[in-house]
Amino acid sequence: MTTNFKKTYRFAFLTSTAITLFLTLAMGVFFYFYSSEIMIWFLLGFAIVCYLFSFFIIQYRVERFIYNRIQKIYDEVSLLDASTYGRPKITTDMETLTREVGRFAQNKKLEIEALKIRENYRKEFLGNVSHELKTPLFTVQGYILTLLDGAMKDKSVRKKYLNRANKGVERLTYIIKDLDMITKLEVGDLNLDKERFNIIELVENVFDLLEMKAGKKKINLTFDKVYTDSIFVNADKERIQQVLTNLLVNSIKYGQKNGTTEVSIEDLIENKVIVRIVDNGEGIEQVHLPRLFERFYRVDKSGSRKEGGSGLGLSIVKHIIEAHNEKIYVESQFGIGSEFSFTLEKAK
């Protein structure tokens, strides 16, 4: 480990001064009865030699003593993670040393707390993945075992159970596909095919795709106003359609019956537009907002699973928007509604 050695002479100075005064006074008492000009010069020379000798010996020994032991401590602690504390300065100044060790301990404490948070997140994530995969797997297995136990002889039962098993397989495929997409987005392995397109037209297409789904809950998909002019943006059209679809599906899924989901497109700055999706659904409690875009994170641990989905929709949205180097925002009031918004580059 490379270290920077910071010297301080205070301890050696004070200690050498004390030793020199003591020995000089002792010599002075010894030669008290032999006082002469020669003896005075002798005591003065003795004091200088004693001081210099004491100073350099004490400074060297203290430096080596503290240096070796503190270096050993740093080396041992650095085995945990050398990158977290950088290159510490070793010093014989105890005040500085205490401050540096205190700062080092505080950094380690923060690091340990961060690791605990990460560990809890990892455990929760693995638990969520296990649950999401286990449910459709057990469903498929249950129907297949029932068929193997003799139910396949009944043609009507066989067809019904095979259809249900197929839905379980489709759900598994959907989850794995979404996980694969998020992984590619995170490592930058998913190339974006940017093009110039009319965002108003794209939103209308998504409205058409989700018309039947929204109709089942009597939710009205609409714009905030009549857009007579086109608004062109520069982005990956297919991915932005997926973003709009995921956000609107979420709005329908958690929206109130006879509710409304409203989309607006506004100029943000000179070269940016912001797309807002506002609903008057059940809303989200503030405690959930910071974790809303995590994989498999669900606000309602029971009810949301009944609604289906992979639990990855919002996480995919976040990654797609960030892949465009844009921002996504969420605001919500529980019992009143939610607003999701994201920025896009305006096309020239």
Score class of each variant (00 low, 15 high):
K216C: 01
K217M: 12
Y227P: 11
Q141P: 00
N166Q: 14
V226E: 10
L179I: 12
K167H: 08
S130E: 03
V206M: 08
K155C: 00
V203R: 05
I182L: 13
I144E: 11
L202M: 09
L145Y: 09
T222H: 02
K217R: 14
I175Y: 03
I199L: 11
K225C: 05
I200Q: 01
V187S: 06
N191P: 07
Y143V: 10
K177L: 11
L221R: 04
R158Q: 08
D189V: 06
E211K: 15
T139D: 12
N128A: 11
Y161K: 05
F207H: 03
N220W: 11
E170A: 12
Y227S: 12
N205P: 00
I144K: 09
I200E: 00
G188C: 10
T139Q: 12
D229T: 13
Y174N: 15
N163W: 03
G188K: 07
V206K: 06
R196K: 14
F138L: 15
A214C: 06
T139W: 09
K218Q: 03
V187I: 09
K216R: 13
K216T: 07
Y143T: 10
E132C: 01
V226M: 02
A165V: 00
K184Y: 06
E201Y: 06
G168E: 03
R164P: 01
L162V: 10
Q141F: 11
K159N: 07
N166I: 09
L147R: 06
P136R: 12
I200Y: 03
E204L: 06
F138A: 14
Q141H: 05
I199T: 04
I219R: 04
K153F: 12
M152P: 00
G168W: 05
L192V: 07
T139F: 09
D193Y: 09
T173R: 05
K213F: 04
F207C: 00
Q141W: 05
L162S: 02
Y174T: 12
F223G: 01
H131Q: 15
R158K: 10
L162N: 06
K217E: 10
F223P: 03
E132F: 12
V157D: 02
D229L: 13
K155T: 05
R158E: 08
R171H: 11
K167G: 03
T228I: 14
D224W: 02
Y227C: 13
N191W: 06
K153C: 00
I200T: 04
L137C: 11
D229C: 10
I182Y: 04
M212W: 02
T183N: 11
L185G: 02
P136S: 13
F223R: 03
R171Y: 00
K218M: 02
L192Q: 09
A165N: 04
Y174D: 15
I200K: 02
